[in-house]
Amino acid sequence: LPDDRKKPIHIAANSAQIDENSGITTYTGNVLITQGTMKIKAAKVNLYQKNNDVNRIVATGSPASFSQQASANQAITDAFGQRLEYQVDQQTITITGNARVEQDKNQFSGERIVYQMEKSLVNAYSGEGNSGQRVQMIIQPKAK
């Protein structure tokens, strides 16, 4: 929801290390981050803070997952990928490595997906060269 950002962030993980001088906290092992309706699950998460405020989260896993309800009348959006990068202030998530976004049974996949949470806009890009994974979008028919 739009006011998720104001909510406190809870983080659970098997272990955590804080690197004082760079301000990066690294969580590893069944990492679960929740903030309001937003949830991030991953094998390893790097949390970047600037003047004591979280401005960037990078989660990796096979796959790492993200889910959030963008607004009251919209269904939950899930995103999966080997690497999720959440830019808090721009409210965008960049998913790479078998990136996949699902919402209300519609599905987006591609080599790289940029999901702008406020505008709930998804931009997908296919991989380089002939072998790169192409953008695919699957829209389920409307229930009759």
């Binding site: 963008a70 919209q74 959006t77 919402q103 209300d104 519609n106 987006f108 591609g110 505008k119 709930s120 806009l121 998804v122 931009n123 997908a124 890009y125 296919s126 192409r134 953008v135 695919q136 979008m137 699957i138 829209i139």
Partner: peptide
Amino acid sequence: IINAEQGSSSLG
């Protein structure tokens, strides 16, 4: 099923 090299969609 839609395939393309690039796609941008405002969900729904």
